[in-house]
Amino acid sequence: MIVGRDRRSQRGSRIESANYRLFLVVAHGSSLGLVAHIGFIPLFLWLGVPVLAWFNVASVAVWALAKWLNVRGEHPWAIQLITIEVILHALLATALLGWASGFPHYLVTLVTFTMFNYRLRNALVALQAIAIVLLYAGLFHWTHAGGLMALPDATLAWLQFGNILISFLTLALVSFYFREASLQTVQSMAELAHTDQLTGLPNRRKLWERLEGEHLRSQHQDRPFVVIMADIDHFKAINDQHGHEAGDAVLCHVSELLKACLREQDTVGRWGGEEFLLILPQMSKQDGVRAAERMREAVAKSPLLRDGKGLSVTLSFGVDDCPPGADLDRCLRQADTALYQAKAEGRNRVLAAETG
């Protein structure tokens, strides 16, 4: 789980990836609420209900405050403010104009907002939702015959239609943005599960998925693919002499150089520690050796610049091909054996696995 300021949040806020769905829902819901309440001010003045016009002036301030709190990461407080405002607005408007005005229907939308308040326990959320439902039923019982102020039936009909329309639009928007945020969260979690956090490369789990997929494709197309094990030479010495921060920088530097040497269909990932695995589809072992040699030269000729000085980095490579139907574990073991033989023979070199 990512903790801290989310990359999608505004500067200075405390929005986190875990709460991003809630942020998005409240953000768009409060924007719609602001527009609706601003529109109610002239409407109630035109209808001759100044008390509701002034109430909506205060409501605009409350919704603006809720929007600001949401941006600051205080989503539960924003929800509570919205909840209180909607309840008071529904009570006052329905008492004055009656059930036929359509204002009680905003309580239906409010139940959805209540469910998003993660600071409340499930029991409290359920109680609050039940209380809203009972309030809705109570308003129907006491105001279905009319409110304290009489408005023409035609005016009430249009008012009811508009309120129902806004209520359904709010529910639709809340559902849509919650769905969008949920999909983004699922995608982010999938990326975290398959990505090395330091280098941004596929991790060991993702590389196994790629290997299995390439293994199936090679059988279907009857063409081999190449696996290459690459390991940073003297990586422990780099950490010991220059610190782990320098070691991390070397890993990122090498990752970028390897990616730059690959074709679009190739894959490079962090296999573990300072070791990388490369998967090169539709390639023979000889072509794989040549590709590894190009990568070796690219890394050796590109020192990492730190504090105005160049830190030389080299890689050793072990190469093997995987013919259609070959055992994946065996191919990886042979590439790994070739890698360690390259290390034993002096490092900064490419060796191919022995055939058979």
Rank of each mutant, 00 (worst) to 15 (best):
A66M: 08
A66Y: 06
K67T: 04
L69R: 07
R72K: 15
R72D: 08
E74H: 12
E74Q: 13
H75V: 10
H75Q: 15
Q80D: 11
Q80F: 09
T83H: 13
E85G: 00
I87L: 12
L88E: 05
H89N: 06
A90G: 08
A93R: 03
T94P: 07
T94S: 11
T94N: 10
A95Q: 11
A95M: 13
L97P: 05
L97R: 07
W99D: 02
S101L: 05
G102R: 03
G102T: 06
F103N: 02
F103C: 00
H105K: 02
H105R: 02
Y106K: 00
V108Q: 02
T109V: 14
L110S: 01
V111F: 10
T112R: 01
T114C: 11
T114G: 10
M115K: 03
M115L: 15
F116H: 11
N117R: 14
Y118Q: 11
Y118L: 09
Y118E: 15
Y118G: 02
R119T: 11
R119M: 01
R121V: 10
R121T: 15
R121E: 12
N122V: 07
L124T: 14
L124M: 15
V125Y: 05
A126I: 02
L127Q: 09
L127R: 12
A129H: 06
I132G: 00
V133W: 14
L134E: 12
L135G: 00
L135R: 02
A137G: 08
G138V: 06
G138Y: 09
L139T: 09
L139F: 09
F140K: 06
F140I: 00
H141N: 07
W142N: 09
W142D: 09
T143D: 03
A145D: 09
A145Y: 02
G147M: 09
L148W: 15
M149C: 07
M149P: 00
A150P: 02
P152M: 05
T155E: 14
L156G: 11
W158S: 12
L159A: 03
L159D: 09
L159K: 10
Q160E: 12
F161T: 08
G162R: 03
N163V: 01
N163A: 06
I164L: 13
L165S: 14
L165D: 13
I166M: 10
F168Y: 09
F168Q: 08
A172V: 09
A172K: 01
L173H: 03
S175C: 01
S175E: 01
F176A: 15
Y177T: 15
Y177A: 05
E180F: 04
E180A: 12
A181L: 01
A181C: 06
S182P: 00
L183N: 14
T185Q: 14
V186D: 14
V186T: 13
Q187C: 04
S188R: 13
S188F: 04
S188V: 08
M189F: 03
L192Y: 11
H194T: 15
T195K: 01
T195C: 12
T195P: 01
G200A: 07
L201E: 02
L201V: 08
